[in-house]
Computed example of a mutant assay.
Amino acid sequence: MPATTIHFVRHGKVYNPDHLLYERLPDFHLSEQGARMAAATARFMALNPATQAVVAVYASPLERAQETAQIIADGMNQMRKSQGRKPLELMSDERLIEAGNEFRGQRKDRWPLMALQPANWSLMSNLMEPSWGESYRAIAERMRDFAYEQVERYPGQQIIAVSHESPIWAFRRLLETGKPEHNMLLRHTALASVTSITFDVESKNVLGITYANPASGVQ
Results as ranks from 00 to 15, higher is better:
R144G: 03
L90Q: 00
N126W: 09
A53C: 03
F171E: 03
A119W: 05
W169L: 00
I197D: 08
L20M: 08
Q52M: 10
W132K: 01
R64M: 13
R173A: 13
L207W: 12
V194H: 01
D93L: 05
P130M: 03
T195G: 05
Y58F: 14
F28Q: 07
M143I: 13
E63Y: 04
T198F: 02
R64L: 04
S31P: 07
S203M: 08
F146R: 02
F171G: 03
A212S: 15
R36S: 13
D200P: 00
A59Y: 09
Y211D: 04
E202P: 06
R64G: 05
N48P: 10
K13H: 09
A50Q: 13
V55C: 13
Q66N: 04
K179H: 07
V218F: 12
S122Y: 10
W121N: 08
P214H: 12
P112D: 15
S122L: 13
M143Q: 09
E176N: 02
G217T: 13
P49E: 05
M184L: 01
V194K: 07
N205S: 15
T5A: 11
A115I: 04
D200A: 13
V14A: 07
M128H: 07
E98V: 04
S82P: 00
V162F: 09
A138T: 06
H164G: 06
K86V: 11
S196N: 07
P17Y: 03
A119R: 14
F28V: 00
A56F: 00
Y15P: 00
Q52I: 00
Y15D: 12
H19M: 09
Q219S: 09
L175R: 10
P49W: 06
T198I: 01
Y148F: 12
P214L: 11
V54E: 08
